[in-house]
Design a binder for these strands. Structure first.
Length: 552
RNA sequence: UGUCCGAUAGUAUAAGGGUAGUACAAGUGAUUUUGGUUCAUUUAGUCUUGGUUCGAAUCCAGGUCGGACAACCA
């Protein structure tokens, strides 16, 4: 009865810690975004991991904003991050900010100065970089390194009191300039920034570096498992050094490989460029891999959580195929989306033997995957219908199951029709398809005994409503834009957005509600765009249906 | 030419000294009033060379390949 599920390496660590009674069996994780951009699907992986761990092992998760750089951060981002985490379905135990700890962090720094483990350096950024050496050559010190504790205490206090301009001085940890680990070569702890902070206002003009704030914040909150991405592995010895010297709670850091998705980019810097340079409509453009973009595109929280579950957690670098994400949303929507009919690229079908003034009302299940169909809706049928241009072929290949002269096809939830002919305009474009119908073949009442291979969707011309439909394709033409030569923006897919200004939709679709997924039968899953209005409906295509039909 | 991390089907991820499994993708067939769904089925993998062992994806050693690390960013 026990479902045997394999654990990822972090779950194994947590389980072992619990077994050994570490931290009294307590599990406290945190999700620590910097409020300088919108969350993306890569963050979703981290969110699902951190919150998932806590949920799984009876613990809690803090939401902590790493807001140590006031010039890049903004409340707009704080708000969007909170919205996205909640939308994904997670609730944090505490909403915290690294800036909550600025006083304590300042005391920590003073303590290190007093221990002779930190000093004020007047060097310029260039000088410090030069003195650090390179990964293969050791760095060397400077005269400031030998300042007395008293002088350091005085200077650091003066830094705090605003006596010096930006960049004049920094506080550095005194560790080892010859360490093979660059992060241990006297890393910066504090820098001077006369900047207004979104939380602390003008209280401070010195701000701690991430490396002197993150581990300490974890310790203050008594985070048991501090989970982050691979690039922080070399920082870990530094965090451990601070914890040891400061004698504070020993949070343990564990690193996993960040998510990479093909045909997109996943760095906040690059996403910001796409937004600022106008390549997309904003952070929530449906082509963006941001949480808000996916939401606007029609992805559901459940599908994203499922995706994060399926990609797993490990330490090797990875590049996940977009097909997996699409598989997750299709699986979810297949079970929940209401079926509707819409014609995106119309051509007129005339049922020549159907009276011009007659209208019949047919109905279709909302969702055949649900027991009972999840209810149904009605739609009118008449002599002239819109069908997809691609559902008729003048010269069909062998296994073409749709309309061609002499072929029969089922009009979904209505009649079987037989194609008798078609009409062309002077340019040779097909303008009409002519059919006759089999009256005994009415859906639900079919006594015709006929079986047909194809079923196509349709909308009554006289009753059709219109809507703008936006079709999205991958944002980039190559799997990994960042690894290509030149600028990643050179590889943007020029056809990533195709707008159909006037698609014909069945009447019931005017009742579509925001946030719900609809399957346009045979065409894909769609959802209302945030800019849709009653006067002008706008649908975004979330994802196409899988298409097993390949022309030979 | 330093330190650290990693390497299992196309893509991910399990197997923790004892049958290399799962998902997605791809192929085939069946069902189907969506060429969807569902079901069945096939293809396809342990970076390399040695060693330990009755037995190695797993442990050890060397190599190869990939990645990370030098910002008053996080």
């Amino acid at each position: 009865m026990t479902e045997e599920r394999s654990l990822n390496f972090i779950e194994e660590i947590v389980e072992e810690d619990i077994r050994e009674g570490k931290n009294g069996g307590r599990v406290l994780t945190r999700f620590p975004p910097e409020p300088n951009g919108y969350l993306h699907i890569g963050h979703a992986k981290s969110i699902c991991l951190n919150f998932g761990l806590a949920k799984e092992y009876g613990g809690k998760t803090n939401l902590r904003f790493d807001d140590t750089n006031p010039v890049k951060e903004d409340v707009e981002y704080v708000d969007s991050i909170k919205e996205d985490v909640r939308w994904l379905g997670f609730e944090w135990a505490n909403e915290l900010y690294a800036s909550d700890y600025f006083d304590q962090l300042y005391e920590f720094a003073v303590k290190l100065i007093k221990k002779g483990l930190a000093y004020v350096d007047d060097s310029s950024p260039e000088e410090i970089a030069a003195q650090k050496g390179t990964p293969t050559e050791p760095g060397k010190g400077n005269e400031y390194r030998n300042r007395s504790v008293e002088e350091n205490l005085r200077l650091f206090a003066e830094m705090k009191d605003g006596k010096y301009p930006d960049g004049a001085k920094v506080l550095r940890a005194k560790i080892d300039l010859a360490s093979p680990n660059m992060h241990l070569r006297d890393p910066l702890m504090y820098r001077i920034k006369h900047a207004n902070h979104h939380r602390t206002g003008d209280k401070w003009c010195i701000y701690p570096m991430y490396d002197f704030a993150h581990g300490e914040s974890d310790a203050i909150e008594q985070i048991t498992h501090s989970v982050c991405t691979l690039e922080f592995i070399p920082h870990r010895p530094l965090y451990d050094w601070f914890i040891e010297q400061l004698e504070i709670f020993p949070s343990k850091q564990y690193e996993f490989a960040r998510l990479n998705l093909n045909y997109t980019v996943m760095s906040k810097r690059k996403l910001l460029q796409l937004v600022n340079d106008g390549y997309v409509d904003g952070w929530d453009d449906p082509r963006m891999p941001t949480i808000s973009g996916l939401r606007r595109r029609g992805y559901t929280p459940a599908s994203i959580r499922d995706f994060c579950e399926r990609i797993g957690v490990a330490k090797r670098e990875n590049m996940i195929e977009m097909a997996l994400l699409e598989s997750c949303i299709r699986e979810d929507l297949n079970k929940t989306a209401w079926r509707r009919m819409a014609v995106l690229d119309p051509i007129k079908l005339i049922v020549t033997d159907y009276p011009e003034d007659k209208t019949e009302t047919f109905h279709g299940e909302n969702n055949p995957e649900v027991e009972g169909g999840d209810g149904s809706r009605e739609f009118p049928f008449s002599r002239e219908l819109w069908i997809e241009r691609e559902d008729f072929m003048e010269e069909p290949p062998k296994k073409f199951f749709r309309l061609a002269v002499g072929n029969m096809v089922r009009l979904k939830s209505a009649y079987i029709v037989k194609c008798e002919g078609f009409a062309k305009d002077t340019a040779g474009n097909i303008t009409e398809v002519h059919c006759t119908h089999i009256p005994e073949s009415q859906s639900g009442n079919d006594t015709s005994g006929l079986t047909v291979k194809g079923t196509i969707h349709w909308v009554s011309v006289r009753h059709a409503k219109t809507a703008e439909v936006r079709l999205y394709d991958r944002l980039f033409q190559v799997e990994d834009p960042s690894s290509e030569d030149g600028d990643f923006k050179d590889y943007i897919n020029p056809d990533s957005l195709h707008i159909i200004p006037n698609a014909y939709i069945e009447p019931d679709l005017v009742n579509a509600v925001p946030g719900k997924g609809y399957q346009f039968i045979r065409k894909g899953y769609f959802t209302l765009d945030k800019n849709s209005t009653a006067e002008k409906l706008v649908f975004n295509r979330t994802v196409t249906l899988k298409d097993g039909w390949v022309k030979k």
